[in-house]
Design a binder for these strands. Sequence first.
DNA 1: CCTGTGCATTGATGTATGATAAGAAGTTAT
DNA 2: ATAACTTCTTATCATACATCAATGCACAGG
Lengths: 197, 197
Amino acid sequence: MQHLRIVDYLSSKLHIESDSISTLFDTCILKEIKKNDFLLSENDYCKHTFFVEKGLLRQYSIDDNGKEHTISFAPENWFVTDRESVYFDSPSRYYIQALEDSEVVLIDENFIQLLSEKIPSFTTFNDRLLHNHIRHLQNRINLLLSASAERRYLEFIEMYPDILLRVPLTMVASYLGITPESLSRVRKDLARKNFKK
Amino acid sequence: MQHLRIVDYLSSKLHIESDSISTLFDTCILKEIKKNDFLLSENDYCKHTFFVEKGLLRQYSIDDNGKEHTISFAPENWFVTDRESVYFDSPSRYYIQALEDSEVVLIDENFIQLLSEKIPSFTTFNDRLLHNHIRHLQNRINLLLSASAERRYLEFIEMYPDILLRVPLTMVASYLGITPESLSRVRKDLARKNFKK
DNA sequence: CCTGTGCATTGATGTATGATAAGAAGTTAT
DNA sequence: ATAACTTCTTATCATACATCAATGCACAGG
């Protein structure tokens, strides 16, 4: 099998030799997906965690008025999944779509089980992932409760400067909870302020 | 030691006899705290998970303008903590305060370790708690992104009918991300609509 | 009993953001 | 190269929600 980024990623995070885990991934499925194709749709039962080898994914919901709301972006070396659907075996409320031609490693519960057995530190790492996720979600809630559109945008570019350059502003707006038009105005204001200084 | 709700709670969740875990809690600290007192303040390092035996707690942040934003409410039989601070050993951005005279069990990392060793199913339970937390946070983000103040309020009363009756509306408003005045108007509108029907 | 304090409500007014529409600029397909 | 899309911006108008200020109530403490 070809060389996988996830092997390097895990070997660095788990502080182990990449050789020692490389073979574990021989059975893993590497899936290529074209721009705009879906890995998950609403009402699907999500069965995998996706690790992004290449490309960029977006997770989003669609509300009663047909509007999209971005839950997260996932570039290279990121995990993305609908934990609610996987863990509680419930129909998903989200879509996961490729924003660029991408490659993902499909990781199911059995494989997680395998990793946990073969690599003792993997359990700890997994736990860390969960806590990181919680930290991130809680921080985002706090921002949505307390910060203006402008401040949220500024935090976004600070946190994800790379992503800003790869996705349409429409989707950034839907991540921030505002319309594309509002984001356009926010950017205009910021540009003006920076010019004045 | 007196009888603890957390023992019943865990014995029911873990499907084990309460007698078999009761003694584990002999070393646990049961703390009484008065209304308006704090279990955690901003910049503290949170060292415990709190289990609410009695009373009601609130977790909230204060923004740059001095406004409070409620992160969560915790009534009897709930766990509350700042996972970010505990897990990543970082100064907390939140306050945890008693809204009523309360009693909480203090659970530190050592005790979690002990429970994991003595009760095999506890690890699974703990994992479930984390996933539940994530599910809850993600759903809330989705609501903040997509729903009006009215809809968020309706979801709140559906989800936490009991809490609505125990906390000032000001705090409900700060949970929903609106001002008390706006909440008052939302409620007025709803009352009018229901009357018309 | 009075008085202070906190909470909810209401009205008047202000503002940030939404809705709609249209055009400019960049991108993709034929 | 032209057409057909997307994306982004701008303008106008509309609205949800915020802000500010005042009032009424309930209730706790002296």
